[in-house]
Design a protein around this nucleic acid. Structure first.
Lengths: 204, 204
DNA sequence: CGTCCTTCTGACCATTTGGTCAAACTCTTT
DNA sequence: AAAGAGTTTGACCAAATGGTCAGAAGGACG
């Protein structure tokens, strides 16, 4: 089975169903906690059939991560050097928070992987991710040089934005345990984070 | 084997060795990824001997979490209503960051558990943790009422502090992948976070 | 319809893993 | 030194799990 390009409608449908199911299971149980049986059952396939489409558990995981990476980094890519700096960064924060709300499984998939030392995506982190982050950090640095935002460490600013926004997806169980159920948390979080970064970045 | 109080020196030594080893293994592999064999080997014991001291894998995990909870919440408990508000909160941020630097395994232990839905500590979160957080959130609210810090949502402020500080322990692999190895990150992070919260909380 | 390629399945396998147990060893106490 | 409690281990077990394989079922096409 060629992992790269599906050739028939059945392949397309089943590969998609497997990846969807795998996202469910991996994001909730981590790599080690996920079982092929559970992924297969969630996808509505038998285990051998699942293994007809992917050579093994690891291959499914890798395909998932690779396929989701672009989606995950889109908000940062959209940070635009021609915009108004504070608005650009606040916009990035809100987009990232919106991603956490809309794609919590994707967030937890990456979180699980990184908490356990990122054994399967170390090369992605040190490669394309580092490149993108360094580039955007340089942009933020230029904004500070020009006095258009407060002088802060750009890398740590980006880390803090990741941390505060993904927190609402990754640590959802804790947030709900303390604030109670419901989805209003994201609205309140948006308001809080916008205020936090607006005040912290205001130049002068 | 009574789980609560060791009676002999051997018990004291071995129970401590087991918990130390379990912290290593659980924090690095998660509950499901940890094996009794690996914990036993790390502790320098045989697997049956390990099970002489604890009735099972879950019991070790629970004992770890319970024993570490106090340590973990100490910085928040120390938030003092008689201090200068901004200094108190900045102090809390720096204490929490110091915890992440000094006890990254403990941080990851909790992170692993919560990312996967906190199945084994839901009662702790909704009980003692929620109580403590609500209490300190009220304190922060009073400070805002008195105009001594900027008006922000206290719960989300606490979440943001947890997120930004624990990020350096839990997502260490990512931070190192982007910034390179070394421990200077914590120093830079301290400077960044102090500035972030000082600016954001300055009243007016 | 018959052929060929794709898709699917039941049965099976090897390894890992949490856990048990009887027996052996060690240490303290009298 | 003998007794008895506390400690340790090798051998073993059942269940879970990732993966294989031969062949059956299904669909496309001449």
């Amino acid at each position: 089975m060629d992992a790269s390009a599906p050739r028939t409608r059945i392949q397309e449908r089943n590969r998609a169903a497997i990846l969807e199911a795998a996202l469910d299971v991996f994001s909730q149980a981590g790599f080690r906690g996920a079982t092929l049986d559970r992924i297969a059952k969630t996808a509505g396939l038998s285990k051998p059939n699942l293994l007809y489409y992917f050579p093994g558990k690891e291959a499914i995981h890798v395909a998932l991560l690779a396929g989701l990476l672009d989606l995950w980094l889109d908000p940062l890519r959209a940070l635009d050097d021609s915009g108004e700096p504070v608005e650009e960064i606040v916009g990035y924060v809100l987009r990232k928070l919106e991603m956490a709300r809309e794609f919590p499984r994707e967030s937890r998939l990456f979180a699980n992987e990184i908490v356990q030392g990122a054994p399967r995506i170390a090369d992605i982190i040190e490669g394309p991710l580092k490149t993108l982050v360094d580039e955007k950090a340089a942009l933020i640095g230029h904004w500070a040089d020009a006095g258009r935002i407060a002088r802060v460490d750009p890398h740590h600013l980006i880390f803090s934005i990741w941390a505060t926004t993904q927190h609402y997806a990754d640590f959802d169980a804790q947030v709900r345990g303390i604030l109670g159920p419901g989805e209003a948390h994201f609205t309140d979080a948006a308001e809080f984070l916008e205020q936090l970064y607006r005040r912290a970045l205001r130049p002068g």
